[in-house]
Design a protein around this nucleic acid. Structure first.
Length: 197
DNA sequence: CTACCGATTATCT
DNA sequence: GATAATCGGTAGT
């Protein structure tokens, strides 16, 4: 089915071509969408409202993967904005980011830390082998597993509504909380973690 | 080539 | 609160 014909729109590339912390804040309330392959007329949609994000910069941000410059792993952070940057961490989890940066920067990304499932919830629970819905996707490693996201999805165009992984527009949230980023040992001064409250 | 360690999570005490 | 699980990427030799 044609996404446009049923009123689905995606933030376009210019949305991501802004200061990384601004993009991180504005991603709250948007939808993270995973289309599972199947009958092409009937792809299963796994969808969650983005409820928590973190902004990461380039060589100016000691907590960023891009702090030491370009490497094979972080190459997407230097690529076009609006692409998925997915990496493997702690030997067992994947984390998903969106490449983003203002014109003056050379690298950046926004980590998606948490989503609120709204479509395909049962399927997510199967992927996570859970029986209670509460914790299905409320963490960066949890949501990638719930949506079956791994390194094979690195570098996908999230502005493309037909892509197996993309981001769709949603309701603009009312209250947003800013706080220090977590899970890092440096660069904790800035309030670059954003959360729906 | 080697050694270290991480943008995490589940499962303990 | 503390810790084990588990391995690829990276920096340093």
């Amino acid at each position: 089915m044609d996404p446009l014909s049923i009123g689905i729109t995606c933030p376009q590339r210019s949305f991501y071509e802004r200061d990384t912390s601004v993009v991180a804040r504005d991603l709250l309330g948007k939808k993270l969408v995973r289309l599972l392959a199947g009958n092409s007329r009937d792809q299963e949609r796994l969808v969650g409202i983005i409820t928590e994000t973190e902004a990461y910069g380039g060589e100016d941000d000691p907590a960023s993967h891009a702090f030491h410059g370009y490497t094979p792993r972080n190459s997407i952070m230097f690529e076009r904005c609006g692409l998925s940057y997915i990496y493997f961490i702690y030997g067992m989890y994947h984390c998903m980011n969106v490449s983003a940066r203002s014109k003056t920067k050379q690298a950046g990304a926004v980590l998606i830390r948490s989503i609120l499932p709204i479509e395909g919830i049962n399927r997510m629970m199967v992927h996570r082998n859970l029986k209670n819905i509460g914790d299905v996707a409320n963490g960066p490693g949890k949501l990638t597993r719930a949506l079956l996201i791994d390194k094979s999805h690195n570098g996908l165009d999230l502005t493309d509504c037909t892509c197996s992984l993309h981001i769709e527009n949603g309701k603009t949230p009312r209250r947003i909380l800013a706080a220090p980023r977590i899970g890092i040992s440096v660069g904790t001064e800035m309030d670059w973690r954003f959360k729906l409250s």
